[in-house]
């Protein structure tokens, strides 16, 4: 079976600033070292790791935002590693990215209508019914008021701005959605809304999702499979419940053990109390 997105032996090296001599090349730092993974349509693969693990660089390689040092990325069986021009433009339509900071990825001087339909213009698409109608539909899809198409990013909250970022990504019906710490900057209640929204949209649209995150509890709620990264390599990969339930690699175990937890006795008591309360409130 051909995977929707397939990465093989990805390597990314960066020159180290200040190490270049007059006659000697700069030293090189390997940010991503022989990383391979497969993503299927309708699935969410989470790349988790701490800072400097190479997870974001891997996502950028997969989305062709930066070029590989070596290795290949296939989208639907086509090698996209060396594409350029119109072919690359088409790849970029099919792979859309949602970033961490919603405001810095939205132009503050553009209306929401202009923002969410920008990928369509970039793709030089005909827009049936005009951009306003398309923008309104997109806002509705992500749970925003379609009447707000004329507003500017500063008139929205952080969670709403992230919804705008998601609407823009969906505008060109991507096959792959890359979420790079897309819920990390949000308050916990807003975070829950955005996770639910991503799950609903994925069910409806069937895109594959590459979900980059450092927060393991968030990953547990959204991923179908998980790849754990440290020092530029994947140390463990598997379906969600096996990685969380029976981690094999020492690093994964250490990572999971470090996550702060609410006292399980308090959690159990809270569930009992909530159940008792709802049965009281229910009409007899």
């Amino acid at each position: 079976m051909t995977s929707l997105l397939s990465a093989r032996d990805l390597v990314k090296e960066f020159p180290v600033a200040g190490t270049q001599g007059l006659f000697t090349p700069a030293k090189r730092f390997t940010a991503v070292n022989r990383v391979s993974f497969d993503l299927q349509a309708g699935e969410t693969l989470a790349l988790v790791g701490e800072s400097g693990s190479g997870k974001s660089t891997t996502a950028r390689l997969a989305a062709r935002l930066i070029d590989v040092t070596s290795g290949t990325v296939h989208l639907d069986g086509t090698d996209i590693t060396a594409l350029h021009g119109d072919a690359l433009r088409e790849v970029r339509r099919q792979i859309q990215v949602v970033f961490q900071d919603p405001f810095s990825s939205l132009n503050p001087r553009h209306t929401v209508e202009r923002i969410v339909t920008a990928p369509l213009r970039y793709q030089k698409r005909e827009i049936p019914g005009g951009t306003r109608a398309v923008a309104q539909q997109l806002l509705e899809r992500v749970g925003l008021d379609p009447a707000h198409v004329g507003r500017y990013p500063s008139q929205f909250s952080g969670g709403q701005a992230q919804r705008i970022g998601i609407a823009r990504a969906l505008a060109v019906r991507p096959r792959v959605l890359v979420c790079d710490e897309a819920v990390s900057a949000l308050d916990v209640s807003v975070q829950a809304q955005i996770i639910n929204l991503l799950r609903d949209l994925q069910r409806e649209e069937g895109f594959g999702c590459l979900f980059i995150a450092h927060d393991l509890a968030v990953v547990r709620q959204i991923a179908t499979s998980v790849a754990v990264m440290t020092d530029g390599t994947i140390v463990e990969t598997g379906d969600r419940d096996s990685v969380f339930g029976e981690p094999r690699h020492e690093y994964t175990k250490r990572l999971l053990a470090a996550v702060p937890r609410i006292n399980p006795e308090w959690e159990a008591a809270r569930r009992r109390n909530a159940a008792a309360r709802s049965s009281e409130e229910a009409p007899a």
Partner: peptide, 28 residues
Amino acid sequence: FSDPRHAYTRALLDAVPRIDDTIGELRS
């Protein structure tokens, strides 16, 4: 944590993703 009285506290606790548990739809 075990018996939150205020609706906001309850909602906040419901929205926290749990590492040891998948809680289906996260309530928000």
